[in-house]
Design a protein around this nucleic acid. Structure first.
Lengths: 157, 157
DNA sequence: TCTGAAAGTCACGAAGG
DNA sequence: CCTTCGTGACTTTCAGA
């Protein structure tokens, strides 16, 4: 009698959380290893992973790459403030075509959005800022990242 | 005669960049598929991936999970300002034991660090702020994320 | 560095409880 | 929802160019 929680957006059961924990740590872990670690048969794990993917709890898998080695050593945060407070709030759509923008967060506080960006150089950042202001009609405040003591650590699932 | 760029921290050659591009998009892509997409034999791709891993260009693989479904729906940015400007700068070490902190960036600007955190609730955020202030002797400024139009998009490799 | 082949592992669906 | 089982696909290594 396992504790079934909810079918779609509810909480996850212990075994599913264990699977997610392993896959966040090692996204290329084989089903065979996964099965051993969570104490189930390979097929059972296979079914659960597929269910987690369908349910959206597992949104995908990505390699982590070194920004320096791909020629994008400069990270920055850019906060956006609309110039015209009455303008329609379609900033994400106006900005998503810029590949230097890795993440876009709508936030509470003085500013409306925070962007996390990655560029090749200060000149690249300057050019990106120009593009952002032009595309979104916003004023910007930029905070340059000097170093990253740690990043994207696995959450405590 | 392929263009060898550098053995360790230099730039990467076109085929290697193609491999990284695919693996960032799909971290569980099979070597067989990878080989087809970059136009090489399976063995050659295999060797290149291993080399990219050893060189540190490929830092690992991670599953992307839905914060809501793992019970951590609240994201926030916390900026840190040291209370004692003369204190030794060991803030990352003082904070890394807090699993709610996903990323820690040392930044130029008014504040010294920006933390990206993920918690279960406003109460969890309040408790985390208390822990951060106590562990690191800093004053904090918190910006709560309301929604995330997009996040962790693959960089243009 | 590449290729191709051989051997071992693994993924994935079927059938059944 | 789990297990076992079987087949085809995949990974991984190695010799050779």
């Amino acid at each position: 009698m396992s504790d079934r929680s909810a079918s779609s957006p509810g909480e996850l059961e212990a075994t599913d959380r264990a699977i997610l924990r392993e896959l966040v740590r090692d996204g290329r872990c084989s089903f065979t290893d996964l099965a051993e670690r969570v104490g189930l048969s390979v097929s059972a794990v296979h079914q659960r992973v597929r269910r987690l993917e369908q349910r959206g709890a597992l949104q995908g898998y990505a390699a982590k790459v070194d920004g320096d080695q791909i020629g994008l050593p400069l990270t920055a945060f850019i906060s956006l403030t609309p110039i015209d407070p009455a303008a329609p709030d379609d900033y994400p759509q106006r900005l998503e075509h810029l590949p230097q923008i890795e993440s876009c967060f709508s936030v509470a506080g003085d500013e409306s959005y925070i962007l996390q960006v990655r560029v090749a150089s200060p000149l690249g950042l300057e050019e990106l800022l120009r593009q952002i202001r032009e595309a979104a009609k916003v004023s910007t405040r930029t905070t340059v990242v000097l170093s990253t003591p740690f990043e994207n650590r696995p959450p405590a699932i």
